[in-house]
Each structure stands twice: as C-alpha cells, then as structure tokens.
Computed example of a mutant assay.
Amino acid sequence: MSQNCIGKIRSNYARLSEKEKKIADYILDDPDKIIHGTINEVAEDLNIADATVFRFCKRIGFKGYQAMKIALASEIITPNQQIQEDIEISDDDDAKTIADKVFQANIRTIENTVEILDHTAIQKAVNLLLYSNRVEFYGTGGSAVIAMDAFHKFVRTGIKAFAFIDSHFQLTSASQLTESDTAVIISHTGTNKDTLNILKTAKRNGAKTIAITGYPKSPIAQHADVALYTSSEDNEYRSEALSSRIAQLSLIDALYVNLVVLNKEKAQRSLEKIRSTISETRM
C-alpha cells in the first residue's frame, strides 16, 4: 500500500505536539514548499530545529524527510489530493451526495487505520485472546456499543466472552478477573476515568490487557499490555470519536477472524450450539 502523506498528517494531527502541528499546518497549507524545499529551509521558515522536522517525519510514519517528500510528491500529482475536499459535507448537498461522502469518509478512516496498524501488536493481541480462560470487553458511552458487538462476535469462537453496558457492572466484573483472563478496553481518547479504573482493576488482578484507542500517548495505551490504534477525523457533523467506531469495529473483526482461523473446530462447535439453541426457541 502506498504511503498517503497528507492522510497520515490529518489522521495523526490531534496527537501532535504544538511544534509538530506547526509543521503539519505548513505542509497542508502549501505542499509544494516541501516538494521543492530542503529540510533546512522548512526549519528556517518555521524557526525550529532541523531535528524537529526530522522527528515529525518519523512521527507520522516515514523514515525521514526525503521519504516523506517523495510520498508527498507522488500524492500531489495524483487525484488523491482532492479526496479531503471531496468528502467535506456542504449544506447544499442532496441525500445521495451526503450518503456517498459518509461512505467515502468511512473508507478513508479504515485506510488510514490500516496504514498505522502495528501487525506485531495484532499478533500479540491474538495470542493473549487465544490462550485466555475468559475475555471481557469494556467501554463506556459509544465504546460500550463496540464492546457489546465484540462480545456478540467472540462468544461464537468458543472462548468465554463477556461484556456489560453499565460501568459499575464492568468494574465489578473486572474485580473478578484472574491471571488467566484478558480484558479488552475500548476508548477513543483513552482518558475516560471509568475506563481507566477498569484497566487498573484488571491489571491489579493480574489479567492481561489490550487497549483499542485513537491516542498512543493516552493513559490506557501507555498502561495496557498491548495497544491497538485507530485513526479518524472529525467534521462539522460527526465527531472524531463517532467516526473512529468504524475503525474500532474493523479491528475487532480482525481479531475475531484470526481466532476463528486458529481455532476452527472449537468455533464451529460453538456456532452450532448457538444456532441449535436459537432454532429451538423459535419452534
């Protein structure tokens, strides 16, 4: 997959430091300056050190300034540079146009998340889930819906999976976890107080922890055993947290399918039991 420089900048923007945002704005305002300029010229224009520009390039996923410059040049001479403008919703848009733009924005959220996906972390998460006696999914607010969707999927794998909507029930359940269990904690910002308490409780009991969040420097990401990140953007009609859910669901799907592939017979038996039970209740 080609590296989308502008997409990387926009998807990481909320997590950047003030100096890094200054560089990001400089690039987004006039990409040609980067394509035709040197790292020294950029640093001089912004009154910052060359090393700061270099660290910015690394922060958004490039090996250095030259690699970012090549990716940006390739992007600018293609229609991809119009994507952001094309998905901005206008008050004059009709129903079909708005629907098209929403779908395009969701596609882009997933594409940006794939670009920042850490495959080593995915493998670690799969291993934790595969060898857990019990897996619990936690999230508050909108993330609670994602946790319930995860439960709906994972209960079909044959693994003991659980999720609760109420935050007090979640905390109570986390207090019963053991070293053989895994807690999957979902929070876009990674700073929610209730979710942090659940994470601390799970870790105190020796349970393994997996975080799904949009912020690598958040407390949840920093303290979980494995952290998986999503990328999203906000606009006038939909917050960043709302748009992140499509990426969170996709991450859950990726973990679920990995487990089914590795545990086919157990998953098949579990699915047959579910189907049989549902069929009996309908008779």
Results as ranks from 00 to 15, higher is better:
K96Q: 07
D253G: 02
M68Y: 11
S218M: 04
S187Y: 12
S11P: 01
L262D: 05
P219I: 07
R245D: 03
Y229E: 03
L128V: 03
S250N: 13
E20T: 03
T38M: 08
A247R: 03
K63A: 13
I107T: 12
A51E: 14
M148Q: 09
G37C: 06
L196A: 04
M148V: 07
G158L: 05
Y13N: 02
I48Q: 09
S250M: 12
E179V: 12
R238K: 09
T178F: 01
G190F: 05
F164G: 07
R282A: 14
I274E: 05
A202L: 04
F164M: 08
I107F: 07
G190K: 08
V135A: 15
E115D: 14
K264F: 08
F103H: 13
Y229V: 00
I9N: 11
D30I: 05
N263W: 07
I116D: 03
P216N: 08
E240S: 11
I220V: 14
I186L: 08
Y237S: 05
K264E: 15
D100G: 04
E179T: 15
E136F: 05
V257R: 11
S74G: 15
R134P: 00
A95T: 14
E179P: 01
L28Y: 08
A67I: 06
D118Q: 03
A144H: 08
V114R: 10
K273I: 03
Q176T: 15
C57Q: 04
S232K: 07
S167I: 10
Q81Y: 12
I6F: 11
S180V: 00
I186V: 12
E236M: 12
D32T: 07
F56Y: 11
L262Y: 14
A267P: 02
F154V: 01
L259Q: 05
K33A: 01
S270E: 13
A95Y: 14
G142Q: 05
H36F: 13
G158A: 06
Y65R: 00
L117R: 14
K200R: 11
K193L: 09
A221D: 06
T113L: 10
S250C: 03
Y229R: 04
I165A: 09
A24V: 05
R269L: 14
F62M: 11
Y13F: 15
